[in-house]
């Protein structure tokens, strides 16, 4: 399960951050998740609620997810378009030589903590 591996790592990354910054309680974690990162948000939140209890600094925290829209670049006509709407084929020139520019991320944007 993809979500579990990411959550385990996310919790560890936050433990490290708390140590470095001298934090004892993280109340909110805002995460930016790419639209096509393959992360199922429902499952992700369930996983978070399960694993946060194993980390004292996170046990009372709330996870806030923000979506980063997926954008694809077409190397034939050099235009960009919405990945989710059009998929792999460029809607302007119908080329298949297209690459994802953004939308695959999973980044901790900010935390609220003391």
């Amino acid at each position: 399960m993809h979500e579990m591996g990411i959550i385990i790592n996310l919790a560890e990354t936050l433990d490290d951050t708390a140590r470095e910054e001298g934090l004892t309680n993280i109340a909110r974690v805002t995460l930016q998740v790419g639209e096509v990162s393959g992360i199922m948000t429902d499952l992700f939140e369930d996983c978070w609620n399960y694993f946060k209890k194993k980390h004292p600094v996170l046990s009372e925290s709330r996870l806030v997810l923000e979506t980063i829209p997926a954008v694809t670049y077409c190397s034939s006509c050099e235009k960009t378009y919405e990945t989710v709407k059009y998929g792999r084929e460029c809607p302007y020139c119908h080329s298949g030589e297209t690459w994802l520019v953004q939308g695959n991320e999973c980044v901790i944007k900010e935390i609220e903590a003391e």
Binding site: C106, E110, E112
Partner: peptide, 15 residues
């Protein structure tokens, strides 16, 4: 409580 901007990969601990 304070807000700390991180802009860190979720998997930074793994890296």
């Amino acid at each position: 409580m304070k807000v700390i901007e991180l802009n860190k990969k979720a998997t930074a601990a793994n890296d």
